[in-house]
Design a protein around this nucleic acid. Structure first.
Lengths: 200, 200
DNA sequence: CACTTCGTTGCACACTGTGCAATCTTGCAC
DNA sequence: GTGCAAGATTGCACAGTGTGCAACGAAGTG
């Protein structure tokens, strides 16, 4: 927890500039129509530098900040005696709060995805890394083995889905409904065992 | 439902040859280390022809047959009064039976994925098309709207996850446990509302 | 036997993503 | 402040992906 340091700060600035340029250009022309070269130019850095920060073009759109292990941190903060599902749900609420702090940008990102159906899979693709981390955090909390036991992997996978579906609905409603409530609906349906189409 | 015709048959042969060559080479060297050019050569066709059948390299590994809408068909066959979750579960059992008919090949495909972690996301990526189809089939059955109602999209997403987790477990156990039973365990946990780590 | 349809092929091309080496700036110790 | 190590940026070359286009030939149709 030492001082960030000038070097680290400039690095984050570069990443942020690239992410911002990506978002702006993608909103304008669609991500597919924008080349990495254009993004780098708009951010004032070289083509090669782009790949020092992001390994894939999509990453610049969908992971503007560094690889945050926020879920694991938030999960660890929950009361130890809380069952896994409520604990994970509370942790994800915190993650969603972070997203909500950047409302406009995230709604724009979701718009870019909605406008280019081919990109939706890539969003999911980026999400698998987080899903893996989530599974490991759940395994650590429950004392299970992430590789042999069913529960951690299944819960993480299912919650990732709920998150994805929720973001999709949130965007389709113009971000007017509170993200929190939409996610709550999804998790409630899960906790009830997907009994049937009760929630319209 | 007319006769397939010689032309159509040859087309399927070409696709099958490409898929088989892809699997063989990928098992041997890993998919990333194999180029499309090598695959095409091994299948006895030109480089360009590969992309007449598959739009992405991964597709040749993970979708050896044509784009089958098997789930929707199987779902339509279920008793109309059956609730959505059991109906979808039964339909997916049929899909899994199809996979099981090709046991060895599918276990090999899963091995290729397991050996190359970077590929797992791409599997998910390919799966999103099926997920969308699944959501539409469920929407049609329940009379809900796939775009505005929560239920179809959520159920399809969650079942896709269960399927993915199940295939993963199946492979890790060497394909010895019946695919059917592993999937049943996952869906049981879902139907129970993910109460806690009861199923070890 | 025309005539259409369509899968295959070759070619050119824009772009992605990587390895490598050079350069420059920051952080740190003396 | 001077020198040195760490690391971020850059340029260059390169393998490979995926696409558009036009030509060719075999399969389907009358």
């Amino acid at each position: 927890m030492t001082t960030p340091g000038l070097r680290e700060r400039k690095k984050q600035d570069t990443r942020a500039a690239l992410a911002a340029a990506t978002l702006r250009l993608a909103v304008e022309h669609g991500l597919a129509a924008v080349t990495v070269e254009q993004i780098a130019a708009a951010a004032g850095v070289s083509y090669r530098t782009f790949f020092n920060h992001f390994s894939v073009k999509e990453e610049a759109l969908l992971r503007p900040a560094g690889t945050e292990r926020t879920f694991a941190v938030h999960l660890a903060e929950q009361e130890p005696q809380l069952p896994p599902l409520p604990a994970a749900r509370a942790a994800l609420r915190s993650v969603l709060a972070d997203l909500d702090a950047d409302r406009e940008a995230w709604l724009q990102r979701l718009s870019v995805i909605a406008a280019e159906p081919d990109l939706l899979p890539r969003l999911v693709e980026l999400g698998t890394a987080d899903e893996r981390a989530m599974a490991e955090a759940i395994a650590a909390r429950t004392g299970l083995d992430v590789d042999t036991d069913l529960y951690p992997g299944l819960l993480a996978a299912v919650l990732s889905c709920a998150l994805r579906v929720t973001l999709n609905r949130w965007h389709r409603r113009g971000g007017r409904e509170p993200l929190d409530r939409l996610f709550g609906e999804a998790v409630d349906a899960l906790a009830a065992g997907l009994p049937g189409p009760s929630a319209a």
